[in-house]
Write a protein that binds this DNA or RNA. Structure first.
Length: 553
RNA sequence: GCGCCCGUAGCUCAAUCGGACAGAGCACUGGGCUUCGGACCCAGGGGUUGGGGGUUCGAAUCCUCCCGGGCGCGCCA
């Protein structure tokens, strides 16, 4: 909750006391309701600079404020020098109308100028189905994209397809081995190959469709055929998996297209022109140490082929050339060591240190009955994202992935995920929404027609006012989540909101005079405005997470 | 060995760029209730925030040193 006029007035008052120009007045909502609705530590911040006692300064700041004009009905100095403000109840209640009017736009903001972001996530090798780790990356990436869109930016969701690497060759070898087995030959999956059942399925389908061409030895043309077929199949399946998870990409960019476009050479030439490439032991190195990396990196190996790093630089350079101002990559924790060199490379290209950002997502451990459910791609038994979605649903899966900070290692508790009660936080939040919708239905009310220009003074219960204040925190929460690339702040907010909302609602089950419906008309009307505002916030919050706000459950 | 991330209630996790008394859920204990949706409600116990030291009016948060865990340290991808 913010009161910009109050913040500005405090800033002017502080400057008048000689605190200087570089002030950022922050008003925060105290955890303890006894400390008022908003508080600031401004006096303590400037006390050191001015060599004064914080509490005295706080008194002077307070004296400089025209409280009624700022919608403050009470203010005091407290503790070591906090200024606590109590906002006029009428002003608070007025804000409920604004929430309802803004409806699906409530919580939107436009910090910054509306930048163009590229958010790249999942980017799995096209060598098999997506697993739970990809799911977490997808949930986080998509939520970050939604947060950025909601805060005034333009966002492209992108998936990078590593279709040119050695992993594909291993997959083709594995398919070949399975194919031979189907023909009755003794054959085993090569070292480092893929054992999943889908490999056998691929081989079997290929045999059914192309046996006239593939039953003999596989030369170059045959391998090309299998490669194209396999890549297409894997990409289609991954795209379908993502669609089921409610994630739609704007762009699938392939590594091979980076090679074909000539950008590899162009990138290398640009780095050379900048004098950042040198030869050593027959290889070409990039001076990443100049830009904070701990060692220089090879771009072109002594055998003339390039490392994985070079096309990756070229690809990210291309993002800048396509007009993106910030490129955010969501990476698994196993790639975190790669971050400094990529930042260094972008810096080397003159794109600055802030062009490239990595969001590191920690690994997921799945448990059932307290036991880890193993997933090992190599052994061929792994929990695919699709398995997980089929078992617990997209909403639950997304919520669980977005419940913890990206850097937090997480345990995915399958038993809790399958729980269909308020023990399960997802249901708690969705249920809060469904309840409000249910109130409208029961009352025969069209929620879009709820009257707003009415007297809201019947909203006097502390629970109702606390709820109102929480609703007013939503835009700040969203902005902070977007800025820090931490969608879990929204999840945590919704969890707290749902608790408040549910207990507000339950007051009515204990005391019917506190229900929305069945009161004197002016009371019901006022409570409907609060209910509507709450519904708007829950709905918008869930939208940011990519989770449905159900009409009924 | 070096680097990054993490360590918060028995368990899984929060904690508003350093704020006031560290919060939820699960589990546990004790009450209550039959629905404006009971797919429950209320209350309670539970913590030296891994440990020591430091900075600060104030530290879970910042610095430092230990302990414990994860990941990474190729002319692999």
């Amino acid at each position: 909750m913010q009161l910009p006029e109050l913040a500005r007035a405090l800033e002017r008052a502080a400057q008048a006391l000689g605190a200087g120009d570089e002030l950022e007045v922050r008003l925060e909502r105290p955890k303890d309701v006894g400390h008022g609705d908003l508080a600031t530590n401004l006096a303590m911040l400037i006390a050191g600079r001015l060599g004064r006692v914080p509490r005295e300064l706080a008194e002077e700041l307070l004296g400089a404020l025209d409280l009624p004009a700022l919608h403050i009905e009470h203010a005091e100095v407290a503790g070591p020098g906090f200024l606590n403000f109590r906002i006029s109840r009428d002003y608070l209640r007025d804000q409920l109308r604004e929430i309802c009017r803004a409806d699906q736009d409530y919580g939107r903001s436009s910090w910054g100028v509306g930048h163009l972001f590229n958010v790249e996530f999942v980017s799995a090798n096209p060598t098999g189905p997506l697993h739970v780790g990809h799911g977490r990356g997808a949930a986080v990436g998509d939520a970050i994209a939604r947060l950025l869109e909601f805060t005034g930016h333009k966002v492209q969701r992108e998936f990078y397809v590593n279709d040119a690497g050695a992993q594909i060759d291993k997959l083709i070898d594995s398919v070949h081995a399975r194919y031979r087995q189907l023909q009755g030959h003794e054959e085993s999956i090569p070292e480092g190959g893929y054992h999943g059942v889908y490999v056998t399925e691929l081989a079997s389908q290929l045999r059914a469709e192309q046996s006239n061409r593939l039953d003999g030895e596989w030369g170059s043309p045959e391998r090309q055929l299998v490669r194209r077929y396999t890549l297409q199949r894997m990409q289609d399946e991954q795209r379908e998996d993502m669609r089921a998870f409610r994630v739609e990409f704007d762009e699938f960019r392939t590594e091979s297209s980076v090679y074909e476009s000539g950008q590899i050479e162009a990138t290398l030439a640009e780095l050379q022109a900048r004098g950042l490439i040198y030869q050593r032991e027959g290889a070409q190195w990039l001076r990443t140490t100049t830009f904070g990396d701990d060692k220089d990196r090879v771009l072109v190996k002594s055998d003339g082929s390039c490392t994985y790093f070079l096309p990756d630089i070229a690809y990210h350079r291309d993002k800048a050339q396509r007009g993106f101002e910030v490129a955010i990559d969501v990476w698994g924790a196993d790639h975190h060591g790669y971050v400094p060199r990529m930042k260094a490379a972008m810096d080397a290209l003159g794109l600055g240190r802030d062009f490239f950002e990595a969001v590191i997502v920690q690994l997921v451990r799945v448990e059932r009955s307290g036991e880890e459910v193993k997933f090992s791609k190599r052994a061929g038994e792994f929990v695919t994202l699709t398995d997980l979605i089929e078992e617990v649903g997209t909403d639950v899966t997304r919520y669980f992935f977005l419940e913890r900070g990206p850097q937090q290692q997480m345990v995915f508790d399958l038993d809790l995920a399958k729980e269909r009660s308020e023990k399960n936080p997802v249901y708690k939040v969705q249920y809060a929404h469904a309840r409000l919708r249910s109130v409208y239905r029961r009352g025969g009310i069209d929620p879009t027609q709820i009257e707003l220009d009415i007297d809201l003074s019947p909203l006097v219960q502390p629970e109702a006012l606390e709820l109102t204040k929480t609703l007013l925190d939503f835009p700040d929460t969203v902005a902070a989540a977007a800025r820090s690339r931490e969608p879990h702040r929204v999840t945590a907010y919704l969890d707290g909101l749902a608790n408040q909302l549910n207990s507000w609602y339950h007051m009515g089950t204990r005391n019917h005079a506190l229900r929305v419906l069945g009161q004197e008309e002016h009371v019901t009307k006022a409570r409907l405005v609060l209910a509507r505002a709450a519904e708007v916030v829950v709905r918008n919050g869930l939208w940011l997470l990519g989770i449905e706000a159900p009409e009924r459950m």
